[in-house]
């Protein structure tokens, strides 16, 4: 018995490149930003960046679970647009009877949350019970929701009643202790998500399913139910993000939430979650979201590179992130 299993302190030794990579990238971006523009580290700009990150961020946390469990959801952007449209329609319709006030806002929120969960369940049902590929299902629902919102808006824009809009605005623009609501909600979602992913049975089950579905099944993990839950949770979070988003513009149109799905997926991947599933980390996703918004922010604040090149730079970062991950893996 010479080849004893040793309990080395490997876990405490230097973190690997896949852990350090995203953090280093974020630090570098902050340093560049601070050097380029003195307003960059000002409270106003930081709040602005965080608040804008919040929508994609909240969705991306949900996406982390879906991807970790070996799934994908392309429909979240148009789902957000559809939910926004629905919220506005319902609130406008209820206005004559309910009047401007807290109850009607709560009604709108309820609509968003319920619609989100239902939309997520629909995706999940088609993927798990009916057994269609996630890519196909969500490509389909992506088209459906986008077209529904266009139809609801009759090709134009759905606007929230002016009085309501004024009443609802603080949900985006105000908060407690100078921290705006979207940031607070984002923070809560991240903390709960991180705990769920790294400490809870649910997260462990998601990773097991993404790693090997058959093994999960043989290990008494309810594969379909867990997958369904990831989609429902993502739907719920899309609803929550929409609740924060509607007061910002007070309207919804065919271009609301355009390409959010890709930004969310990109953030998840940059954060170190494996696209084919089996491993995910919520804190990484947060860093991914921040990296993406910082690039946008820095390009807007400085005139070094045209903001039109934003997409190109983000693309390079995504590819780099994946290369880094692969190298980390090859080294074991």
């Amino acid at each position: 018995m010479t080849a004893e299993t040793t309990n080395t302190r490997a876990r405490r030794s230097l973190p690997s490149m896949s852990v350090l990579g995203p953090i280093v990238a974020l630090v570098v971006l902050v340093a560049i930003g601070a050097m380029m523009n003195s307003n960059f580290l000002g409270a106003a700009n930081i709040t602005n960046v965080l608040a804008r990150s919040a929508f994609i961020g909240i969705i991306a946390v949900g996406m982390t679970f879906v991807i970790t469990a070996g799934g994908l959801d392309l429909s979240v952007g148009s789902m957000a647009a559809f939910i926004a449209g629905l919220m506005i329609l319902v609130m406008n319709a209820a206005l004559p009877s309910m009047g401007v006030g807290v109850p009607i806002i709560l009604l709108g929120m309820l609509v968003a949350v319920v619609a989100g969960i239902l939309a997520g369940l629909l995706n999940g049902f088609l993927i798990t019970t009916v057994g269609i590929e996630a890519f196909i299902v969500t490509l389909g629902t992506m088209g459906i929701y986008r077209s529904l919102v266009t139809w609801l808006a009759d090709g134009g824009t759905l606007s929230l009643d002016f009085g309501l809009r004024t009443f609802y605005r603080p949900v985006y623009f105000e908060g407690i202790l100078g921290i705006s609501w979207p940031i607070i909600v984002f923070a809560i979602v991240v903390i709960v998500g991180e705990l769920l992913m790294s400490r809870a049975r649910f997260g462990r089950h998601c990773a097991a399913i993404g790693s090997n579905e058959a093994v999960a099944h043989y290990s008494n993990v309810d594969v379909n139910r867990t997958r369904l839950l990831t989609y429902a949770m993502l739907g719920l979070l899309v609803g929550v993000a929409t609740i924060m988003y509607v007061p910002r513009l007070g309207s919804a149109s065919a271009s609301t939430g355009l390409l959010w799905e890709l930004e969310a997926i990109a953030a998840v991947i940059i954060g170190g979650t494996v696209l084919k599933g089996g491993f995910g980390r919520v804190w990484g996703t947060v860093i991914g979201v921040l990296i993406l918004s910082l690039i946008d922010n820095i390009l807007n604040l400085t005139d070094l590179v045209s903001p039109y090149l934003n997409g190109a730079i983000q693309g390079v970062i995504i590819i780099l992130a994946v290369i880094l991950q692969r190298e980390a893996k090859a080294k074991g």
Partner: peptide
């Protein structure tokens, strides 16, 4: 290999997967 163990996970995760509750 195909039904028993998660090959990319550690021993701890594999050991408890079935009886996580």
């Amino acid at each position: 290999k195909l039904r028993g163990l998660l090959l990319d996970k550690t021993m701890r995760v594999n050991l408890t997967l079935q009886a996580l509750d």
